[in-house]
Amino acid sequence: MSDQEAKPSTEDLGDKKEGEYIKLKVIGQDSSEIHFKVKMTTHLKKLKESYCQRQGVPMNSLRFLFEGQRIADNHTPKELGMEEEDVIEVYQEQTGGHSTV
């Protein structure tokens, strides 16, 4: 019986991991920090939209990076291997420009 009891508790931990929340720091170019608590399985588009709304800027005017890689709207913290207190960097999107060649 103890084996049966242990097995469901392991499964519960697996389920808990799926719905687990982590805190992420979003740091802007001006070094301002906003902290977000997100589920591991939530699409990061929600975090990006919330950040842009707080900053009063359109979402397409900023780019969000985690460990140097651009974050897509459909990425989740779990897919990117994010952990508690990880940092997302935000930069002004640069458009235009010309070749110097």
Rank of each mutant, 00 (worst) to 15 (best):
M1T: 08
M1L: 09
S2D: 14
S2E: 15
S2F: 12
D3T: 15
D3M: 06
D3C: 04
D3V: 08
D3S: 11
D3E: 09
Q4S: 14
Q4R: 12
Q4E: 06
E5N: 09
E5S: 12
E5G: 15
E5I: 00
E5M: 14
K7V: 05
K7N: 09
P8Y: 13
P8E: 00
P8A: 12
S9F: 08
S9Q: 11
S9R: 11
S9N: 15
T10L: 13
T10Q: 11
E11I: 03
E11T: 06
E11P: 06
D12I: 13
D12W: 00
D12L: 10
L13A: 14
L13V: 12
L13S: 13
L13T: 11
G14N: 13
G14D: 12
G14W: 10
D15Q: 06
D15M: 07
K16T: 11
K16S: 12
K16E: 12
K17R: 13
K17P: 10
K17W: 11
K17M: 10
K17S: 11
K17N: 12
E18Y: 10
E18Q: 12
E18C: 05
E18H: 11
E18K: 13
G19V: 13
G19R: 14
G19I: 12
G19H: 10
E20G: 13
E20T: 01
E20R: 14
Y21L: 09
Y21V: 09
Y21C: 13
I22V: 08
I22N: 02
I22F: 05
I22M: 12
K23D: 06
K23C: 06
K23E: 10
L24H: 02
L24N: 03
L24E: 00
L24C: 09
K25H: 15
K25L: 00
K25F: 03
V26C: 12
I27Y: 04
I27L: 15
I27W: 14
I27T: 07
I27R: 04
I27G: 03
Q29E: 01
Q29S: 05
Q29A: 10
D30N: 13
D30H: 07
D30G: 13
D30R: 10
S31H: 00
S31P: 07
S31G: 10
S32I: 10
S32H: 05
S32A: 14
S32C: 08
E33A: 06
E33W: 01
E33T: 00
E33M: 05
E33K: 08
E33S: 07
E33V: 09
I34D: 01
I34E: 02
I34K: 03
I34P: 04
H35T: 15
H35V: 09
H35A: 07
H35C: 14
F36E: 00
F36R: 03
F36W: 00
F36I: 04
F36L: 02
F36Y: 09
F36M: 00
K37Y: 00
K37L: 07
K37F: 03
V38A: 07
V38I: 15
V38C: 06
K39V: 00
K39D: 02
M40E: 12
M40V: 13
M40A: 06
M40R: 10
M40W: 00
M40D: 09
T41D: 00
T41C: 03
T41S: 12
T42S: 09
T42Y: 00
T42P: 03
H43G: 11
H43V: 12
L44F: 14
L44E: 02
L44D: 03
K45W: 06
K45L: 11
K45Y: 05
K45E: 11
K45M: 08
K45D: 09
K46L: 09
K46Q: 10
K46T: 07
L47Q: 02
L47F: 03
L47S: 03
L47H: 03
K48C: 00
K48F: 00
K48H: 00
K48Y: 01
K48I: 05
E49V: 08
E49H: 04
E49Q: 07
E49F: 07
E49W: 00
S50D: 07
S50R: 15
S50E: 07
Y51H: 02
Y51Q: 03
Y51R: 04
Y51A: 02
C52F: 02
C52Y: 02
C52K: 00
Q53R: 13
Q53D: 14
Q53C: 01
Q53I: 00
Q53W: 15
R54W: 00
R54L: 09
Q55C: 13
Q55M: 15
Q55S: 12
Q55F: 07
Q55Y: 14
G56E: 07
G56S: 12
G56D: 08
G56I: 05
G56R: 07
V57I: 14
V57T: 04
V57E: 03
V57L: 11
P58A: 09
P58I: 02
P58C: 01
M59W: 05
M59K: 15
M59C: 09
N60Q: 06
N60M: 03
N60D: 12
S61A: 09
S61H: 06
S61I: 04
L62S: 04
L62Y: 10
R63N: 08
R63L: 07
R63Q: 05
R63W: 13
R63S: 07
R63T: 06
F64H: 07
F64N: 00
F64K: 02
F64I: 00
F64T: 02
F64Y: 01
L65C: 03
L65K: 00
L65P: 03
L65R: 02
L65T: 13
F66D: 03
F66C: 04
E67Y: 06
E67R: 03
E67P: 04
E67M: 14
E67A: 08
G68K: 01
G68E: 02
Q69Y: 07
Q69K: 12
Q69R: 10
Q69D: 12
Q69M: 01
R70W: 10
R70V: 12
R70G: 13
R70N: 13
R70Q: 15
I71D: 03
I71Q: 02
I71M: 02
I71T: 03
A72H: 09
D73Y: 04
D73M: 03
D73H: 05
D73C: 04
D73K: 01
N74K: 14
N74D: 13
N74Y: 14
H75W: 06
H75S: 13
H75G: 02
H75K: 06
T76P: 03
T76M: 00
T76S: 09
T76Q: 01
T76Y: 01
T76I: 00
T76D: 01
P77N: 02
P77W: 00
P77A: 07
P77C: 13
P77F: 02
P77I: 00
K78V: 10
K78S: 15
K78C: 06
K78Q: 08
K78M: 14
K78Y: 15
K78I: 14
E79W: 07
E79D: 12
E79H: 00
E79F: 03
E79Y: 15
E79L: 11
L80E: 02
L80V: 02
L80F: 01
L80M: 08
G81C: 13
G81H: 15
G81D: 06
G81A: 14
G81P: 02
G81F: 15
M82H: 04
M82G: 04
E83M: 14
E83Y: 12
E83S: 14
E84R: 13
E84V: 09
E84W: 14
E84I: 00
E85S: 12
E85A: 13
E85M: 15
E85Q: 11
D86R: 02
D86N: 14
D86P: 04
V87C: 09
V87S: 11
V87E: 11
V87W: 06
I88A: 03
I88Q: 03
I88L: 07
I88Y: 03
E89R: 07
E89Y: 14
E89P: 00
V90Q: 02
V90R: 01
V90D: 03
V90W: 01
Y91M: 06
Y91Q: 06
Y91L: 08
Y91P: 02
Y91G: 05
Y91D: 06
Q92K: 12
Q92L: 06
Q92A: 10
Q92D: 07
Q92F: 03
Q92T: 12
E93Q: 11
E93N: 10
E93H: 12
E93R: 09
Q94E: 06
Q94S: 13
Q94M: 11
Q94V: 13
Q94H: 08
T95H: 05
T95P: 04
G96P: 09
G96D: 03
G96A: 01
G97T: 05
G97E: 01
G97V: 04
G97Q: 00
H98N: 09
S99A: 12
S99C: 08
S99T: 11
S99W: 08
S99P: 08
T100N: 08
T100P: 07
T100V: 09
V101T: 10
V101R: 09
V101E: 07
V101S: 09
V101C: 07
